[in-house]
Design a binder for these strands. Structure first.
Lengths: 307, 307
DNA sequence: TTGAAAGCGCTAACAA
DNA sequence: TTGTTAGCGCTTTCAA
């Protein structure tokens, strides 16, 4: 019989099995986009970890579009995924999803009211951002600008808050004229940086001294920032020091190499699997892991190499 | 009744439906990795196009690992996806997948013997690579090196062949000492470029003139190449001109901006959906679209800006 | 037009 | 231990 099975290439029908068992051994992952290196790395880590533990990962790109988020969420629920992971930037994490009911959810971002019984793993973006700014302050910078994301996700807000925390802690300026927001893309970073640093962009002569350093809240945007500085004839790190957030692999190969606050996506993915698979298989309680910190990968864009 | 349905948040069970109908309105996508910007853009385009046409896309990252490819392929077949798209670099495209049977397959790469009745959309990588080299020749370069991928996928081989074609057409050197292969990553590009251009890497004094231009077969690797040139004190494009292949969004924000051969991933994704959905819904015949060409996006790494 | 019934392929419970 | 059966929730067919 076994031979016949092998010979005919028989394969069990996963639907029938899932229909009967009520479980599909799959999880859904909702993520805004795979284009920013950091999210791509996160997605890949999650896929690898869950696959290794026997789950199929179904990924949906939401493009920051609330309609798409809801459609994809429904689609995943309809397919009876065992759980859904919401990556940072998916707004369903902060307001209740319709039809979520007793769907198992793990949010990788600060969760708002509306969802209960949701697990979460929360990076302390605020402290991370402040830490990055402190590093710049350690190099003697006083006036530090911020290139951030224009999406109003919790992470974006927290990074800006952290930037402000560090500045206010030493009594430095932290006004809106030092903050520029744009797309999470190289172009977005380029445009924002131009706006902040170009003599035509902001009348620094009137408003005070121009920034000598920047916190850029994503690595892709930092690419654009470097490009903008280069075009403006500003040398990094001598004229402008830069620290970015993300810690993607290619951040070490920019000119100059970026100093970047790295989030350990592998660790986050592993923890996600621990929490979620415990909930799925052992009916474990929802858990939240908060205060996850990144670590600073030193390049030379911050000025550490100077001298 | 309708009210009750809406009120209770009833949702049909996709499994039961799929089980009964024998179709799941979903397709699988196997892709080596999402880390190289070009493949991430391709994956996103495919997801968007198929989603818009009512199909759920289940993506699996194979990491260039044959075992993973086969496991994921099986997993997709078990879930009765209506079709499977094989991205470039998935070796199942070139040798038959076990248990493929009458699974609908679309390969985005030249397909080998073993599979029959497989649709495909094939970019003419060879001509594209040759065209990129010709552009460099048009700038007067004679000795042109090549930074390629060490994976032995058909696309990699074709790009190298195209590089050689263009060189041999004008009787230029095209020897192995001008070719360096590495990982499809910034680091891979950095290492390969160091090997090609560093005075310590290759004894040019003995073997002849050092290259004055490079064809780099992916944008991520080009990042590393630029970084390596910068470190070696070589100015791009004055000392070394560079053209890369891919055409990702961030290629315009490197220093200097890359001249890159762009593949229109959106077009490829749209065509994929046309072919595949026709096969799924109208029992259309497998089709192959060959000779798809990219177009050169002019930056300044090739020397076009030199004034 | 509306309603009842059969069955997709599997698993879990039960009977032998 | 091994074999049999009921039923997961839907869609399709057929009868009323």
């Amino acid at each position: 019989v076994e031979e016949a099975v092998a010979k005919l290439g028989y394969r069990p029908n996963a639907f029938a099995s899932a229909l009967r068992r009520g479980s599909s051994r799959s999880i859904g992952l909702l993520i805004p986009s795979q284009r920013s290196g950091h999210l791509a790395e996160l997605a890949e880590a999650i896929e690898q970890v869950f696959t290794a533990r026997g789950y199929l990962v179904i990924t949906g790109s939401t493009q920051h579009d609330r309609m798409r988020e809801e459609r994809l969420f429904q689609s995943l629920v309809d397919r009876r995924v065992d759980a859904i992971v919401l990556a940072p930037g998916v707004s369903l994490a902060t307001s209740p999803a319709p039809g979520a009911r007793d769907q198992l959810i793990l949010a990788l971002e600060a969760i708002g009211a509306g969802h209960r019984d949701v697990s979460s793993i929360q990076v302390d973006e605020r402290s991370d951002a402040a830490f990055a700014v402190q590093h710049l302050q350690g190099h003697g910078h006083q006036v530090i600008g911020c290139v951030a994301n224009s999406r109003h996700t919790p992470a974006d807000g927290l990074r800006i808050a952290g930037w402000r925390d560090a500045l206010e802690a030493v009594g430095a300026r932290a006004g809106g004229e030092l903050l520029a927001m744009g797309d999470t893309s190289a172009e977005g970073g380029y445009v924002s940086t131009q706006a902040l640093l170009s003599p035509h962009g902001r009348p620094w002569a009137v408003r005070g001294e121009s920034p000598s350093a920047l916190l850029v809240t994503s690595d892709v945007q930092a690419l654009g920032s470097l490009s903008a500085c280069h075009e403006l004839g500003l040398s990094v790190p001598d004229d402008i020091a830069i620290v970015s957030m993300g810690g993607t692999a290619s951040a070490s190969y920019t000119i100059p190499p970026l100093t970047t606050l790295r989030q350990d996506v592998r660790w986050i993915a592993t923890r996600s699997a621990d929490v979620l698979i415990d909930q799925i298989e052992n009916e474990g309680k929802p858990r939240s892991i908060t205060g996850v910190r990144g670590n600073l990968v030193i390049g030379s864009s911050c000025g550490c190499d100077a001298g």
